[in-house]
Simulated scan of single mutants.
Amino acid sequence: MSSIDYTAIRAKARAEVDDELGEIIDPRERRMLAEEIRDQAYMEMSMLRDERQQLVAAAALYEYAPDLHEKFGIGRTHLRRLTMTFLHKDLDREQQINPPRWPAAPEIEWRQAGRPETIRPLSGRVEAARKAGLPHPKDVVDQAAAICARYEEAAARRRAAISHLGEAGEELRTAGGRVDVGRLERPDFATIREQARTAMLDELAAVDGSSEERLRSAAEAVDYWEDAASELLPKRDAAMFTLAFYTTAHGVYYSAGINRNAFNRALARALGLPGVPDLPKRDRQPAAARTAGVRFVKNADIKLPEIAQEYEAAKARQAAAIQVRNELIPVLAAEDWTAPQIAEAIDRDGKIVRRLLAAAAEDA
C-alpha cells in the first residue's frame, strides 16, 4: 500500500505560497494574487473531488483496513463520510454530516448452507460497492492515495492563500491612516533586567567544579543567551515598527525598552534612511513604511511588551554571563592556561582573550 507524507506535502505547498506572496510588498497587489491562488486551488480541488471520492470509496469498500484513512491523509470519520455519501448521493446536508452506518455483513450461515469452509460470503461493504456499480481498479489504494496527495496539496495552497488575504486586508486598513490601538503596557524594564542579571549570576555561582568547568559554563551561558536575544530582536522590532508606523500608539519606545534616540534610529533604518533627520512626518510614515516593505504585525500592541521583556531579560543574562566569563579568564591564565587554550574553551577569537588579559593586568 502507498505511504505518502501528507504533512510534508501540506508544509511545502504552504511554503510555496508564502514565498510567492512574500515577494510582493504592495498589500493590494498581494491580495489580488492571493485571491487568484485561492480560486485556482479551489478549481483544482473541484476537478479532483469526484474522482477522489470514488477511488477512496472503492478502496474503503473493497480493501478496507483499520489504518486505511492514514493512506489518504484524512481521519477515519472523514473516510467513512466520503464513502457513505458516495453510496447515498441523495442524502441531504444533515445526513451527509451524519451518514448511514457502514454496510453490515450479510447474515448468512455459510457452513449451514453446505458451502466449503474456504469460501466466504461477500462482506456487506463489497456487496454494497457492487450494488452501486462501483468498479474495483487494480492498485486502488495507490491510485486513491495519489489523487488524495494532489487534493491535499491544492487544499493547503487554498488555506495559505486565505491566510494571506486576511493579512493583506489588515495592511490595507492602514492605507488611509493608522489603526487605532489602546494605551500600551509599559513594563518596568529596570527591574526586569536586574532580576535576570541576578538570576544568571546566582546560577553560575552555583556551578560546582574547577575553574575550567565554571569558565565553560559561563561561556555556554553567553552563547545561549546571545542566540536567544538574536532570535527575539527581529520579532521585537517588527512589532515596534508596526506600532510606530501603522497605529495611533504614542511613546512606543517605552514599551520596547529603549530610549527615544535609539527608537528613532531604528525607525530610520527600517525605512532605509541615512539618519533620524530624514524621518518623514508622522502623517506620511504609513505610506513610507509600506514603500519600504515594513510588514504589518497583528496584535503588535500586545506582542511588543511581551517580546521586549523577554529580549531585555536575555540581554541582561548574557551580560551577566560575560561578566563571569571575563572574571574567570585571568584565573585560568594564572593556572598556566595559554591565551589560545582559553580562546578555544570559550569559543572566541584569541585576540579577545589577550585583550581581556591585558586589561586585567593593568587593573592588578
Rank of each mutant, 00 (worst) to 15 (best):
residue 245 F to M: 03
residue 287 A to W: 10
residue 229 A to K: 09
residue 328 L to C: 02
residue 64 Y to A: 08
residue 254 Y to C: 01
residue 47 M to C: 10
residue 269 R to F: 02
residue 150 R to L: 13
residue 216 R to V: 15
residue 101 R to T: 11
residue 62 Y to R: 05
residue 121 P to Y: 05
residue 307 I to K: 05
residue 12 K to S: 13
residue 356 L to R: 14
residue 328 L to P: 08
residue 113 A to V: 05
residue 21 L to T: 09
residue 233 L to E: 13
residue 276 V to I: 12
residue 167 E to R: 14
residue 301 D to G: 06
residue 128 A to M: 02
residue 86 F to G: 00
residue 356 L to P: 07
residue 131 K to E: 13
residue 327 E to L: 11
residue 27 P to E: 10
residue 92 D to V: 04
residue 61 L to V: 03
residue 232 L to K: 06
residue 145 A to M: 11
residue 181 V to C: 00
residue 279 L to Y: 08
residue 186 R to E: 15
residue 5 D to E: 11
residue 112 Q to W: 04
residue 341 Q to S: 10
residue 172 L to R: 08
residue 342 I to G: 03
residue 301 D to A: 03
residue 219 A to Q: 11
residue 311 Y to K: 00
residue 358 A to Y: 00
residue 28 R to L: 12
residue 344 E to L: 03
residue 185 E to G: 01
residue 18 D to N: 08
residue 321 A to E: 01
residue 275 G to H: 05
residue 150 R to S: 10
residue 8 A to Q: 13
residue 279 L to R: 01
residue 31 R to G: 15
residue 242 T to Q: 03
residue 284 R to K: 14
residue 130 R to G: 00
residue 338 T to L: 07
residue 285 Q to G: 03
residue 63 E to W: 03
residue 108 I to Y: 14
residue 256 A to K: 05
residue 112 Q to C: 01
residue 203 E to I: 00
residue 348 R to F: 00
residue 114 G to D: 05
residue 58 A to K: 02
residue 201 L to F: 07
residue 142 D to I: 02
residue 11 A to D: 14
residue 166 G to A: 06
residue 244 A to R: 00
residue 354 R to L: 08
residue 148 C to P: 08
residue 240 M to F: 01
residue 254 Y to N: 08
residue 262 A to W: 02
residue 272 G to E: 08
residue 146 A to E: 15
residue 37 I to D: 06
residue 68 L to Y: 02
residue 167 E to L: 14
residue 104 A to V: 10
residue 185 E to A: 14
residue 70 E to P: 03
residue 21 L to W: 10
residue 238 A to G: 06
residue 191 T to N: 12
